[in-house]
């Protein structure tokens, strides 16, 4: 059976797995972005707190994903729960780091000007600092997404959803005719999804980064 025959014969299954993969990554990114931005806002004004936040998330990122999943299983069981927790944890560093760098990088003169014309703390954060940090934050989100795309594939081993199931099916059926097709379908599917997400982020950047600060 050729690769294309395989894809068309299992169209529905592949479509579901692709959808699950994308949806898991997207939802984890939303959660990670919210957490990451909150952490960044809470820490960016203190050099020590920033370093602790970045250091901690960096340490998490150093942990091999298979080991992290292994640690989560005894606590959360198999399936969706450990997958979501692991993906969110891995996505945090680029977001936290870039959000802190972006927020801390806002020209102090601009903040002085904003205070001087009568903006309060919340307005300065929402209207000046976050919009100016947005390009850096968006870069962090892009990097995170690419990363957890691949990690999500490993999560299939602990009964996580998504295209990783195709890859492990290929591994399990080593020697059978469809093994290689399944592995290709899973791997290529992840690559294509990652590129699509990246294109979507590029578009989002075009639409949301004001012309005045576009690089």
């Amino acid at each position: 059976m050729s690769f294309w025959d395989y894809v068309s014969s299992r169209r529905e299954q592949l479509w579901i797995e692709t959808w699950m993969h994308a949806s898991a990554v997207f939802q984890c990114m939303v959660i990670a972005t919210l957490i990451g931005v909150v952490v960044a806002i809470a820490t960016y004004r203190s050099a020590l707190a920033s370093r602790i936040a970045i250091g901690t998330t960096a340490t998490v990122l150093t942990i091999p994903s298979f080991a992290l999943l292994g640690l989560l299983i005894p606590m959360l069981g198999l399936g969706v729960a450990p997958t979501v927790v692991a993906l969110v944890l891995y996505a945090l560093l680029p977001i936290v780091r870039n959000a802190i760098v972006g927020l801390a990088g806002v020209d102090p003169q601009l903040v002085d000007a904003a205070r001087g014309i009568g903006m309060n703390r919340v307005m300065i954060l929402l209207r000046i600092e976050l919009p100016l940090a947005w390009p850096a934050l968006l870069t962090g989100i892009r990097v995170s997404t690419q990363m957890i795309m691949g990690i999500a594939a490993i999560a299939a081993y602990v009964s996580g959803p998504g295209l990783g199931n195709e890859i492990f099916t290929g591994l399990a059926r080593l020697g059978s005719a469809n093994a290689i097709n399944a592995a290709w379908a899973g791997t290529l599917g992840v690559v294509v999804l990652a590129l699509l997400f990246d294109a979507a982020y590029a578009l989002l950047g075009r639409l949301t980064v004001p012309r005045g600060i576009r690089g």
């Binding site: 003169q109 601009l110 002085d112 000007a113 904003a114 205070r115 001087g116 014309i117 009568g118 000046i128 919009p131 100016l132 004001p210 005045g212 600060i213």
Partner: peptide
């Protein structure tokens, strides 16, 4: 501060 005008070096205009 809203009742006091404020201008600084380098204009302090918000680039975005």
């Amino acid at each position: 501060r809203r009742k006091i005008g404020y201008a600084i070096q380098n204009s302090g205009l918000f680039p975005h």
